[in-house]
Design a protein around this nucleic acid. Structure first.
Lengths: 333, 333
DNA sequence: TTGAAAGCGCTAACAT
DNA sequence: ATGTTAGCGCTTTCAA
């Protein structure tokens, strides 16, 4: 059995309060400090965080809910967030909800039950009602990649519309007119924004955005491949395509290979999100990349700040970041 | 403030034990059950897992330590493990130790402090001493991808030597003799095994394994690219290469593109671990894939079983799984 | 600065 | 089947 504070109180002949004070950085007489440290060493004592948590009503644990741990974008953010939080003493419980709203709600319940001190979430659902549990309990919530109006919290977003418009404008500048897009699910915030960016760019160029030039996937590799196939068969005259997330980019490329289409000779291509993959491809892909490190930094920082504010909250913040563009050789001039 | 058991005891006029019994699936008189359920509903009561944990000395939380959350192999396993454990009521605290031994030790400390009920770890270090804390405390440890003799625990392994030998034998069968290998860090168990497989295959074929045909990377994309470059410059006569993990496979392909080498015309290629990437490449890559789902299944199952055994432990198990080979078009006959 | 004691919300042994 | 009670290991008044 592990040693408890009681044990070292007994060992040192001091009272519980003194030990506690020592452990929490309070003032303790020099010679007592030494005695305590010796006892801790000898008995191999370690604070029981669970007991402490019961008393302080803080678990020093943050819940993180994401749509898919398997999505590169998520993983990149999560690794970083986990690292930052842990370096400040917080554990993170990660819940992968498989892009499923119901599972997301279950995860919220699960984490709330566990009394996590705060919640970081990249929402799959479009509703934020289930998150109210947290805000009502005075627990901070930080949203990634989506704004939910029902709920008062910080969010860290990416300017998806701009990202997408910028990409499409590059295709337009290269002289393309029949530009296809592989968009994400129509009920996902980021996906809608990226779609809007495409539309805006096309319209600004005086082109009409035809439905047949847009195929919707669900952010998976398979759906990206299927969408690519669809676009190609529906639009024999299409000369360029913009794909709006990493997994679908991969899927689209798989399908392009399958169909024997040559990039950029027969089709120009702009993908999304993963530099490494873009570089591994022949030809090197032009892609939009999101600042995952920065996102993670802001998310963690906001969470830690709220946690420390402890009640007297300052104004909620919404941070919007810009993507960048990495030029490859997949766009024909 | 959230309602406590005391509150519903008061509300229903029943004793604490009855409520506790109800909550833990004990027998309660029908009409009391109803009363309790009503009170729970009305007061919005939820068990405080922290308090329960203090009492039972169980946190219903499992620690997971992995080298890199960003490595596809890890993520695939983790997603699945998290899912399986959560469906049984266990939370997982994931710690990414960035393939660093020191950070791994810190993570072990961190999780032990947090009183997790068990530890699942894919070790970065070659020593298992720091894990003894867990076994001594009677907490189950499950190892992935590596056996550590200092410590008594279950492990789930992949037959890496076989995987590697099989791949190289395929290259040999296709008539290749000057076969290069991009191996992993020399101090990593799986990497050494894969290297051994390569050597065995070469030796069985009556070829000597020359040092200059082997380049060691550190399982990252960059190192894969660097290793590829090295191999090519050192071995102008090399006709095939085997790369022994996913990230290095990607890196190698990036470098191959960079150098303008054609696969399989100038160089035959067998990679590792990620079907999707293999399919996305032109030509489609032949690869070795590891059964991540299966690994995750066994890992979770072993952990849950140990957790339930509660003392009267059965014999420790070591499970060894086979990889499979997915044929692409990257090997020239 | 230190000690004594109460209590965080729950479980479990014991008594009924 | 239910009530009473004593902790689990810690923090935190309150006094000294």
């Amino acid at each position: 059995m592990a040693a408890t504070m009681k044990d070292i109180a007994k060992q040192t002949g001091l009272g519980l309060a003194t030990i506690s004070s020592y452990l929490n950085g309070g003032n303790v007489r020099e010679k007592n400090r030494i005695k305590i440290e010796e006892a801790i060493e000898e008995l191999n004592f370690e604070v029981n965080e669970v007991a402490r948590g019961l008393k302080t009503n803080k678990t020093k644990t943050i819940g993180v809910i994401i749509p898919e741990l398997n999505m590169a974008f998520c993983t990149q953010i999560i690794t970083e967030v986990e690292d930052l939080l842990r370096s400040r003493g917080y554990a993170t419980i990660i819940c992968d909800c498989r892009s499923d709203e119901k599972r997301e709600e279950e995860a919220v319940e699960f984490l709330f039950h566990r009394r996590v001190d705060g919640l970081i979430i990249m929402p799959s659902g479009k509703q934020g009602k289930h998150l109210k549990k947290f805000t009502r309990a005075g627990k901070p919530v930080v949203l990634i990649d989506r704004k939910l109006k029902e709920i008062e919290c910080d969010c860290v977003l990416v300017d998806n519309e701009w990202a997408s418009r910028d990409a499409v404008e590059r295709l337009l500048a290269a002289g393309h007119k029949r530009i296809g897009m592989i968009a994400g699910p129509q009920d996902i915030y980021t996906a809608k924004e990226r779609y809007r960016g495409y539309c805006t760019a096309m319209e600004n160029a005086g082109l009409l955005t035809e439905d047949r030039l847009v195929a919707h996937g669900d952010y998976t590799i398979e759906s990206g491949a299927a969408a690519m196939k669809e676009l190609v068969s529906r639009n024999p005259d299409m000369t360029a395509v913009f794909v709006s997330n990493y997994e679908m980019t991969m899927g689209a490329i798989i399908e392009i290979n399958e169909l024997g289409i040559e990039i950029p000779g027969q089709l120009s291509f702009i993908g999304f999100d993963n530099v490494e993959f873009a570089k591994a491809n022949i030809p090197r892909l032009s892609i939009v990349i999101q600042p995952t490190q920065e996102i993670a930094g802001h998310v963690s920082e906001l969470m830690l700040r709220r946690l420390e504010e402890n009640g007297n909250q300052s104004e909620r913040e919404t941070i919007k970041l810009r993507t960048s563009f990495v030029e490859g050789k997949s766009v024909k001039e």
